[in-house]
Each structure stands twice: as structure tokens, then as C-alpha cells.
Design a protein around this nucleic acid. Sequence first.
DNA 1: GGTTGTCCCATTGTCCGACAATCGGACCGG
DNA 2: CCGGTCCGATTGTCGGACAATGGGACAACC
Lengths: 261, 261
Amino acid sequence: MTQVRVRRSTTSARQDAPRAPLFDPVERDPAYTRVAAAIEAKILARELKAGDPLPAETDLAQQFRVHRSTVREALRRLESAGLIKRPAGAKRMVVSRPAAAQLASGMRHALVLHDVTFVEVWEAMMVIEPEVAALAATRRSQADLSAMIAAHEAFKASPKGDPQAVEIVARFFEILGTASRNQVLVLAKQSLTRALAPSLARMIDSVPQARSRIVDAQKRIIAAVREKNAEEARRWMSKHVRDFKRGYEVAGISPDTPIGM
Amino acid sequence: MTQVRVRRSTTSARQDAPRAPLFDPVERDPAYTRVAAAIEAKILARELKAGDPLPAETDLAQQFRVHRSTVREALRRLESAGLIKRPAGAKRMVVSRPAAAQLASGMRHALVLHDVTFVEVWEAMMVIEPEVAALAATRRSQADLSAMIAAHEAFKASPKGDPQAVEIVARFFEILGTASRNQVLVLAKQSLTRALAPSLARMIDSVPQARSRIVDAQKRIIAAVREKNAEEARRWMSKHVRDFKRGYEVAGISPDTPIGM
DNA sequence: GGTTGTCCCATTGTCCGACAATCGGACCGG
DNA sequence: CCGGTCCGATTGTCGGACAATGGGACAACC
């Protein structure tokens, strides 16, 4: 509080250029932050491995010499970071690795609140998806291929106005991601599809020919992946994603619509 | 708790295909979760705009009819999601939009804990960075260009073993990101560079020619961006990123090294 | 005027203690 | 080996308390 201001006594109340600070702000962070940081460090250092149960709150409170409430606040912190979680209907917390969904939800928050528009997400997809498809084509396993086909059939089978249709499309993309054998890209991709999903649903519903175009694109992509033809996979995925934008245009949705729905 | 199991009485303890659930798991989530969700919803709906101060904990406790501790746990939740924060040395919490750094740190956790290897991150960079460079080349403003040049000079000026050198390299990438005018890509990029930074530092220190190669690449990229030559920007960025991998090889760091340092 | 000192209140960080609910087991009878 | 019963350990939530400190308001002072 009450920052110490250093001031040239002699001259010039000059408009302040970012002058050298002379003093760093003294760090005083609340106990719950430190507790959280301490536990986080142990987790990142693998001293607590995923799946390990966390000590009871009372234990932690004693070890850190703070009140249980304080520990609990720290735990909420870690919980929302996805570093710990409670397995549905269990009592103790266990250490966990942040799932893709975690990241994706965080990303969605960010995108919504930053007024990110549809084009921006789409542009990112245009960058990532084709390359992922190409990688997937060269690295896919037999199982990946089967999964893709299954998702494809599921989409074809989904009824006309099915709100789940988008889910299935997303799954198709996701499978492609895992087939690419690159977890980083999977995370990135997933965030994008998740962000796009709601508006995509509206698009598919209001553009009649959307479904058949998607079916067709998926078919081509599957074919390319089956033959491990990276170039072809890239080409068709590129078309496929481009089609999304066309769909939006046809549906009369402006490219500058914020993602927030 | 104690899930209700529905069981066909007559025949077949058949291995369970995902049968229709008949009952959804009853949702009992703790109060702090609901409080957090309620506030989160208001934020995402923009009823609470970024910068708005949150009501005092006591107020919230009264409104939600829960104890203040409960409110606080919810707040920690939101805090770690980056939806609210306390402006350094302020008392009240204010609504905020999750910063890129937030996401990046989350991503780093995920990457570290999932044993993501250097190649995976690198591969993702190979996908994203060249395209970003290309976009930046066509969309850059004069200010962007100046900033790039400044960062470039800063890097050249940085002393030999300077641990800050990597920071500066990261800044260069970041500027390129903002010049691309695509927030989504900026977020993605930033996560990658942040994840790579620590090991990159080691690489630069142990490979003598790394600095000059970086300087050279930056120079070429700047030139391309100046002339708004997307193709050239993409090409050189591609080379630049590829060089990182070479650097790692020269430094004797295995491509399969996990990101954890 | 602008700056500094003083005072007060609202609010946060932290603690204490308590209690119902329930999870995990141990223990037991068929 | 299975289903029922009992008990201790732990969590979710609450009530209340208190020191520390931010945010102002207001007076004093150059």
C-alpha cells in the first residue's frame, strides 16, 4: 500500500517515462495462495503423482500451521486449476492431471470475454485442422480409422434436428486429433471446436445442405486417412473447414459475431 | 452415493453395453460450486462487466444465504479461473477477463503433467507460427513493425549469458502474434512459447551459434513483414522454428525430453 | 492549490470451534 | 462370497471473532 514514490527533487515534473523502479513491490500474498503454491509445486514436481489421495484437510492445516478454512481455500484454487479433483462420490481429494475439458472451458471463457469473433476462431481452425489431418493420415492406427468411421456413421444416422449432431462432429475432429499423436495439438483443437460448437449447432440447423456437405467431407477425409495420404487429408480438411464459413454466410450469420452466442 | 443399479432380473448378466440410464445421477454439488457457478454465469452474461467491483463477501454471503467461508471458497475458484482478480494492493475483488498468461500457465500445467515432449510442442509451433507470421505480414501496422524491430534490437543487445534473452525472444513472437490480429492464435502461441521457454533457455546457452541464427532469422522475418510479403514471412518463420529443433539436437537434448525441464 | 496527517468504517485474511452428513471400512450372519 | 450394521474419519457448512488494512473524508499545513 501507499507506494513509495521516488521523485527528482530539482526539475521537471516530466510526464513519467517508465523509469527504473528502484524498489520491487514487496510481496505479501495471503496464506491460501502460498499453501496452494506449495501443493502445486509438489504436484508439478511429481512428488504427488496423479491418482494419489491428498492428505485430509485437517492434516494439511496442521502441517502448514494454518486453519482448515485457509487450506480449503487453497484447495478450491487447485481444484479449479484441475490439479486436484474429487472422483464423483468420493470423499478424499485426489491429485489429477488437468483434462482437456478443463483447458477448453478456460479457453472458452477467455474467448467469450474477449469478444473473440467467429472468424478468429475459424481462422485458427484453418491453420490447425488441415495440418492435424495431415499428421493423422501418416500416423493413424487401425483403431483410429475404425473410430473415425464409427463417428462418421453416427453422424449420418443422427436425425434431422438432432442437437447431438454437433457433438458427433466434434468427436470426429477429436478422433482425428488423437490420431495425430500430438497432445498439444489435441488440446488446442479441442478448445476451438468447443468454442465453436454452440454457434455451429445453429448453423447446421438452419442450412439444409450443411449435413450432406459434412458427410461428404468426412468421407473424403476418411478415405485419405485410410490410404495414409497426408496431402489429400490436408486438402479435404481445408475444404471442410472452409465450408463451415460458407455455412455461416449462407445462414446469414455475420463473421464478426462474437462467440458468446 | 450408492448408485442405484438397474438389472434385468430374468436373463443375461450380459457385459454391459452402454444401456439407457433410466435415471440420471442426482446432482448434489457443494454450495461453493453453485455460488461460483452463479457468479460465473453473471460474468459470462456480461451482467458483471470486466472492471466492475464484486460485492463484498458479506453481501454475497447474505444474498446467497450461505456462510462467508463458503463464498470465499467460491471466490478462490473464480480467482484461479481468472474471472476475478484483486488489482495489486486493492481490497475489493474486481471482475476481469482471463489474461493470456492465465491460459498459458494452465496449459503449461497440462503439458508438464501429461509428459508432453519437446517435439510435440515444437510440432505445434511448426503448424502455427509460420501461418501467424504470414497473417502478421499482411495485417501488421506500423506500430507492430516498430515493436518487432525494438525487440530484435533488444535481443542483439542482450549480453551473452543473459537469462532474459529467452524472454526477449518470446516477446518477439508475441508481437508477431498481436500483429496477426487474431486473439485466438495469440493465446495458442503464447501457451506454446511459455511452455518451451525454460528448455529453450538451456538450448540457447549451450549452443554458441544459436544467437546469431536467431538474429538472422528475426532480421529476415522483419524484412518480410515490412514488405507485407506473407509468403516470405511464412518461409522464414518456418526455417526459424525448424532451427530450434536443430539447436536442441546440437545441444544434445533429446526430442523426447518432457517439457518439465 | 496540492500535499500530508489523522480518524473512522468497511472489508478482507485468518482463526476458533461446532455439527450434520456421509464415506470407508471393519465386523457379522447367512 | 454377499448383503446388512456399526463406527470413526472427513468433508461441507455454519456461527462468530479479531487484527490488519484499504478507502475515504476532513483537517492542517506548505
